[in-house]
Design a protein around this nucleic acid. Structure first.
Lengths: 192, 192
DNA sequence: CCTTGAAAGTGACCGTGGTCATATTGGGTA
DNA sequence: TACCCAATATGACCACGGTCACTTTCAAGG
């Protein structure tokens, strides 16, 4: 489960991930079957489970890697200077996280150290999100009556809320964007 | 699936729910097995699935009923006049929703019309929550620069956030309470 | 009553995730 | 080179949710 020691095992693990990646590209996350992964990777089913605790653990890797890619891009851009820019910066993240209902549920389930004892890739991306947001909040023209990391937690909460609602009603990207903008304006720039 | 028409079917459905309730009382939600439910109810497996779309649909009923019971009590109490009272009013709700990781995940999955086309019991309880919160926010000494229903959505978002974090770290009821209090103070009474 | 069609119920069967006793392989040691 | 044991791999097997072609029961109309 922990990074294997022998070369053979590292290669097997890499083959499993490559096979899974290809299958996801073809048919999406939800349709992924362990049986197909091992078939394509050319290993037995038991081997899969000596590399990953369960199917979700593989998903954690795959999805975590994608989110990290998106966060890389977000970090490469410059810090948003108002709510609209912040929303714009977060759109790509929201889009991926809501690409499939299955993916969104998985992310929620793994966003905390929650279900797993050792913190996984997805949970780590939530830590990264926090750090990035804290940086933004220090620089920009946002409320200061409350610590930046509390504000960042709120941004995360509203991000989740906006995505969750996205699945309920008629969902367009624009609607999700607008909803997040309303939330963040009220959260980050109260005008009491 | 919709309320059955013949008496026999209504009784069967009631027996299934009663059996499930008993099993949940004995061993919790996560440990519930469809096979055991039908065994105890004295019906065949197929019968279960002609009464409930799937196992989760039954869970939706059971959990929704519990939440409604809690909301009844909350509504019976009087409206909180500050953040601390509001948190206190919400504690019982949070406690049930976090009684099992499985339950929390289920609730998140069903909190929107999300996975199901017709809106279910759990989703309806979220509507009720909103209504109750809006009532509170109109009466109490909370910020007015933003509509009450937006504030209520925020309360819900922070409620979820507090519960989610509850599963990550060392979780005591007190910690969850305190976290929610911090969120709601910043959300409902900004001092810019 | 009897007939008849729809509602309700049945259980053998299937798909898929996950386990485990056993076999194979790799690299360190004598 | 021969030996050994830990790491790795195997696949038959199990658990459990869910399906479906078929049977049984109900009640309305003749």
């Amino acid at each position: 489960m922990a990074e294997p020691v022998q070369k053979r095992a590292r290669e097997t693990r890499a083959r499993l991930i490559a096979a899974a990646d290809a299958l996801v590209a073809e048919r999406g996350f939800e349709a992924l079957r362990v049986e197909e992964v091992v078939l394509r990777a050319g290993v037995a089913k038991g081997t899969f489970f000596s590399h990953f605790r369960d199917k979700d653990a593989l998903m954690d890797q795959l999805v975590g890697a994608r989110i990290n890619g998106i966060l890389d891009e977000i970090e490469a851009g410059e810090a948003p200077r108002d709510v609209d820019e912040m929303v714009a910066a977060l759109v790509s993240l929201m889009r991926f996280m809501t690409c499939e209902r299955y993916v969104f549920d998985l992310i929620l389930r793994y966003s905390g150290a929650a279900a797993v004892e050792e913190i996984g890739p997805i949970a780590r991306t939530f830590g990264r999100q926090m750090d990035i947001a804290v940086g933004w909040l220090h620089e920009g023209p946002f409320r200061r009556d409350v610590p930046a990391d509390l504000l960042a937690e709120g941004v995360q909460a509203f991000l989740v809320q906006a995505m969750a609602l996205h699945f309920c009603m008629l969902h367009s990207d624009q609607a999700m964007r607008d909803r997040l903008a309303v939330y963040l304006r009220a959260w980050l720039m109260p005008a009491v």
